[in-house]
């Protein structure tokens, strides 16, 4: 210690030590904080870029979809199910008790117009696309959709009723531009 102290300037060992301590603490704090802050740009660069984010919207013409038919449209790289439900399906979706569902939600909260069920067709378990869009495909125990990956059954309102998926098929933001056109996103 003493040989690094500077007697000419009249600095004592003690002062020298506290000065050094200060420098060490200050350097560590600035360096540590700086490094921590520098991590963020690197992490955030992996988040969706601006062009990806530019919330693409999709417009769907409902005219050709007849009662009891479904179509699949692409929105943000994901399939969106658009179904023109039959009176029967609506009736069933509304008459069941929601209380003992895996993810309780009433059918009324999931649609804007009773017959038009619009939802993201991505299984909330691990992201497979449930079957049931075509008449030939299995619809599961609740006559809605069935995810073959690990066996999740969705009802005519797209609510999870049986299987490993924890949530109902999500309803995206959408808006009816007129009676036969809907804008998703």
């Amino acid at each position: 210690m003493s040989d690094t102290a500077n007697p000419a300037a009249g600095v004592s060992d003690e002062e020298e030590k506290s000065r050094r301590d200060f420098l060490i603490v200050a350097t560590s704090v600035v360096g540590g904080l700086g490094t921590a802050l520098a991590v963020w740009p690197f992490v955030h660069s992996m988040n969706p870029a601006k062009d990806t984010l530019a919330m693409s919207t999709t417009e769907v013409d409902l005219e050709p979809i007849e009662e009891g038919q479904s179509i699949t449209v692409t929105w943000q790289g994901k399939p969106v199910f658009v179904r023109n439900r039959t009176a029967d399906e609506i009736e069933v979706a509304r008459s069941v008790k929601t209380a003992d569902m895996i993810d309780p939600e009433s059918d009324e909260d999931r649609v804007q117009k009773d017959e038009w069920l619009i939802m993201v067709g991505v299984c909330t378990h691990l992201g497979c696309i449930p079957l049931g869009q075509k008449a030939s495909e299995p619809k599961g125990d609740y006559n809605g959709w069935f995810c073959p990956c690990h066996g999740s059954h969705y009802d005519t309102s797209g609510r999870i009723r049986k299987g490993p998926a924890p949530k109902n098929l999500p309803v995206p933001a959408y808006q009816f531009l007129d009676d036969t056109t809907v804008k998703i996103g």
Partner: peptide, 17 residues
């Protein structure tokens, strides 16, 4: 998951990284 994908599904950014 969005961070891993770099988007809203497995897509080009995901393949790149």
């Amino acid at each position: 998951v969005t961070l891993l994908w770099g988007g809203f599904s497995v897509d080009n950014p995901t393949l790149n990284r």
